[in-house]
Amino acid sequence: EGLSPSLGWQRQQVANFSDVRQSIAKHRRHWSTQTLDENVVMPKLSDEEGWKTFCLGETVYKATAASGTHLEPSSALDYSKMGFPPFLSIVSRLNQTTVLALLEILVGWFEEAELVPQLGRWLYALLACLEKPLIPEAHSIIRQLARRCGQLRTTLPSQEDTRLPALNLLICLVARYFEQNDLADQ
């Protein structure tokens, strides 16, 4: 109670998200053919550790893996430390198999971790690229995501917590846009 989003906000997010998906479809060809900077080396599909480092950065991923100590980023633009954000030139290159595999990797990581901004952005971007109708594996992964968000939300100390909007956004998109209605906030 007090942590759930308003219905108006949920409706607005679903409408905006639908527009975002249409724009991705419209611009995908353009962005997928743009040359990537030479420092952007996308991991192979099977390279789970590589993808975690690519999306979350060494600062988040390797620090979590190494007993919770935090590595200081050397620069705000050092993407190997901070992770690559979901630039359109990157996500437009991902086919559905990769989108789903990456969702599975990041949702699996999230089961044992906090919601950091890098993760929120990537989860949003991957949901925006996830084609409907969903295949059963996709259903299962996004439901796991919404449940984890709900679980984490119950642990927040107040509605001022900076993680609350992101958790509610992800729950809203899974439940309302992807029609997992039993998970929706009323």
Binding site: N16, V20, Q34, F87, G120, R121, A128, P165, L169, D185
Partner: peptide, 30 residues
Amino acid sequence: GAAQSDDSDIWDDTALIKAYDKAVATFKTA
């Protein structure tokens, strides 16, 4: 035309990141 140029301004390489950040920034509780 103007609409096309507006659209390409919005849909730069960081468009998804901006869309996410905007959604989070406008959050309202019930």
